[in-house]
Design a protein around this nucleic acid. Structure first.
Lengths: 113, 113
DNA sequence: ACAATACATTGATAAATGTCAATATGTTGG
DNA sequence: CCAACATATTGACATTTATCAATGTATTGT
């Protein structure tokens, strides 16, 4: 169960360590990094046309993983506030969520980065 | 087994995804984040005096974990190039390794950060 | 050389994770 | 309403992970 991810400037409290750890864990899988890299570098995918953006089936193609596995990864990325999912019609469109990355940028200096 | 972590500017190749994922995985545990935060904010610890720096037994006190568990975590952080360990006499002294963080800073923009 | 110290390694165990097949849910077109 | 489609959820499984107790290794002080 994901911790509640607050976006405060954050002392290094226990709760903040867990929130940051959760974001890092979401980033600790190559498939999820590949998904993020694709989202970060494409506004549209081949599946659902140039209108919508990037949908789940695009990400199946990008990763070579099964549909349930992609769905699982997206849930993980969304829970870490790294991705925003928006349902339009039958499709889920995904895009980068800056909130998780903002948390990372705020947290990294506290651990040496 | 950890991937070989290269420090090249890095296209989003499979090898680079795995290297970055390995660093993120090292950061995905609250105990390791607490260790890094301590290393980043202290030049010396109470155990081995003001001379040496921060040794393993300092980190046992900081984390409340057993000695083998701390040793395991340090091995993980070192393999990700987030920490440098130096043995002096009986003690292992640890400090932040900038290389892992440099890899992160180079990689984050590729995934939306 | 010996005892004590500091850390590493091994072995064991419970919990979490990534994956897919099967199934369920919700949406659209006819 | 019904069939087809896109995605989510569930269940199962193998793998990985975090943890500690027990033991091993290396270094120091006497």
């Amino acid at each position: 169960m994901p911790p509640v991810i607050e976006l405060e400037p954050a002392p290094t409290s226990e709760a903040n360590l867990e929130a940051a750890a959760w974001v890092f864990k979401a980033l600790s899988d190559p498939a999820r990094l590949k998904i993020l890299a694709y989202l970060a570098s494409h506004d549209t995918g081949p599946c659902c046309g140039p209108e919508g953006g990037i949908c789940a089936c695009d990400l199946e193609a990008v990763t070579g993983l099964s549909q349930p596995t992609v769905s699982h990864h997206m849930k993980c990325l969304i829970s870490a506030k790294l991705v925003i999912g928006e349902k339009r019609g039958r499709w889920m469109y995904y895009r980068i969520d800056p909130k998780g990355f903002a948390l990372l940028r705020a947290f990294l200096p506290r651990i040496g980065g």
